[in-house]
Design a protein around this nucleic acid. Sequence first.
DNA 1: ACTGATATTAAACATTGTGTTGACTAAGTC
DNA 2: GACTTAGTCAACACAATGTTTAATATCAGT
Lengths: 185, 185
Amino acid sequence: MDRRVDKTKKLLRETLVTLMEEKELRKITISEMTARANINRGTFYLHYIDIYDMVEKLGDEIIDIIKDIIDSNNPMKMNYLYLPVLVKIVEYFYQDQRFIQAMISENGDPFFLSRIQDIMIEYTLRLYKNSFKNYDENYARVIMTFIVAGGVGVFTEWFKNGCSTPINEVIAPCEAIISKGMNNL
Amino acid sequence: MDRRVDKTKKLLRETLVTLMEEKELRKITISEMTARANINRGTFYLHYIDIYDMVEKLGDEIIDIIKDIIDSNNPMKMNYLYLPVLVKIVEYFYQDQRFIQAMISENGDPFFLSRIQDIMIEYTLRLYKNSFKNYDENYARVIMTFIVAGGVGVFTEWFKNGCSTPINEVIAPCEAIISKGMNNL
DNA sequence: ACTGATATTAAACATTGTGTTGACTAAGTC
DNA sequence: GACTTAGTCAACACAATGTTTAATATCAGT
């Protein structure tokens, strides 16, 4: 791809993240963003329709990466894959932390996490289909929605707090509740 | 309070819900909304700063009601209160279904659910403090975040789908996973 | 290097929604 | 019935949008 496009898009992304760290998405204007990035306002429209389109497209890139991570760790070939895949995703989030944190934050894109959640639900459903004694599609879906939403909720809190506590201190309780339940904690 | 204010606010709320059923929040303008409600645009500013302020204030009202439900079912006086309180909240949601559904929907307010989630986490933490053998604040918080986020996730899906399946078909799996865990399903 | 293609710039434009104001009218409260 | 306040109407300056045009800069491929 044209290096000029790359350069512009990266600059815009960088500037957007900076702005998201300062204020809510809806208060960020194209004028402000392009002015700060020293990019002509018209140039923005060569790539995106509006700020939300931009955020969505940036989100798409992350989603694609997550899908790649899932696919490259083929669930059919391994047991108990849930955790390793999660670790790889979190590792990736780490190295793009500013962006991810901005997207997850109050100023970020609310759909970002819910999209990831949806992917993870489908993934775990495929993965654990055989773990259920008497498999029932609806029942399994509720269970997986619960577990994934719970995990995403915990992860979000942890990530919002700047990943300050050791990750095991949040993974361990989740594993405990998932496998044993409250009665056997 | 002045009946005129009541009338205006209800009309605005009603119109907002209708618009949210049609399009994304960010594409709803004050002009459009007041025009449709047959209310002078200037009148809007007598009550709200902007659309988001309005949505937030409408959300506040629901939050207050939820807090009332929680408080009026004093956790200290009952055992196993989690479910009854949930049922009452859901019952309330039922009778204001259009609004709640709009708020929860893709076009709605992303903070609405997360605010409720936060309240529920604090609530369940207080409630179950004594259920933990060796109580640890951080550990308990992760557990409760997981359970509440999971529950909210399941509920959201169910509600988004128009509450079509019997509510027990989503509550039962949640109860099972919470109490017994995956290993004992 | 040369060339054709295209990304970016700069400036201008009409348009739309915002937020506020002031004088007037209607509907409330007590 | 008096007075208080909510709502209306019209006008205003302002900010951001989305689009366009011609000129310039940078690119990819040979």
